[in-house]
């Protein structure tokens, strides 16, 4: 694999007596589009939280762009270029959309470049324009529809200027057409060079998007390969349809 961006080695996480993640290995290459699937409770969200620093992993190592991440706080990981969108959108409710975007521009993107490389205002407008929310820049998140909220979530994640974007169920609860809209957006971002890990239940979207598919079941990685091959694997089928 050329130009590995993210390496996960032997990752483990326990909650009391419950093993949420067990010896997970994973590599993601620069510019790749990776799909991550698994039934509810399979450990997808725990994996995302361990990658992003919201949770501390008990075992194993995460390396990102040559930096060992163990013990690093979430905001420093964001500054290194790892961004996430939350499963349930978590906008800053008292700030306007423009201000929502401004926070990661001020605290992540401009920290990386060492100050005033980008004009926050221009960058903010560009990001809102990209997701089609520029006309609503001065509204509060409470005024948005479901899909607009998802778009805001993605725009805010992109505002930190990430090398890797982890999109955690960015399409749950959206209509078919809306799913296509978000899908197009993610493909466009990838076209600009952003590596993307997509966590998703909507199979149509995952298959349309992913170059490679990873399956988690009960905290273990049971498959990793070309999407068309992976979904035919007997244990994957069993995990999804029940054996």
């Amino acid at each position: 694999m050329s130009n590995v961006l993210l390496t996960v080695a032997g990752l483990g996480k326990r909650f009391g007596g419950f093993t949420a993640l067990n010896d997970v290995d994973l590599q993601v290459a620069e510019g790749e589009r990776l799909g991550l699937i698994g039934p509810n409770g399979s450990g997808k969200s725990t994996l995302v939280n361990c990658l992003c620093g919201t949770l501390r992993n008990d075992m194993g190592k995460v390396t990102f762009g040559g930096h060992a991440l163990n013990g690093m706080s979430a905001h420093r990981r964001t500054r290194l270029g790892m961004a996430r969108s939350f499963q349930l959108p978590r906008p800053f409710t008292t700030l306007t959309l423009a201000e929502n975007i401004r926070v990661p521009i001020l605290y992540a993107a401009n920290v990386k470049t060492g100050g005033h490389a980008v004009d926050p205002r221009e960058r903010c407008d560009a990001l809102l324009d990209m997701v089609g929310l520029l006309p609503k820049a001065d509204l509060k998140p409470a005024d948005l529809t479901q899909i607009e909220m998802r778009k805001l979530e993605l725009a805010r994640a992109m505002a930190s200027d990430p090398r890797l974007l982890i999109a955690d169920e960015a399409m749950a609860g959206l209509s078919n057409q809306e799913v296509d809209e978000i899908l197009a957006l993610l493909l466009k971002l990838n076209g600009q060079g952003v590596t993307i890990i997509m966590i998703e239940h909507i199979m149509r979207a995952v298959l349309a998007f992913s170059q490679r598919l990873v399956v988690l079941v009960a905290g273990r990685k049971i498959a990793d390969g070309m999407p068309q091959d992976v979904i035919r694997q007997p244990d994957v089928v069993a995990a999804y349809l029940g054996s």
Partner: peptide, 18 residues
């Protein structure tokens, strides 16, 4: 802006680099 982000959602603020 950082303070407001913390007030609204501390986890999202961390994820935004705050």
């Amino acid at each position: 802006f950082g303070f407001s982000a913390i007030r609204d959602d501390e986890g999202a603020a961390e994820a935004s680099g705050v």
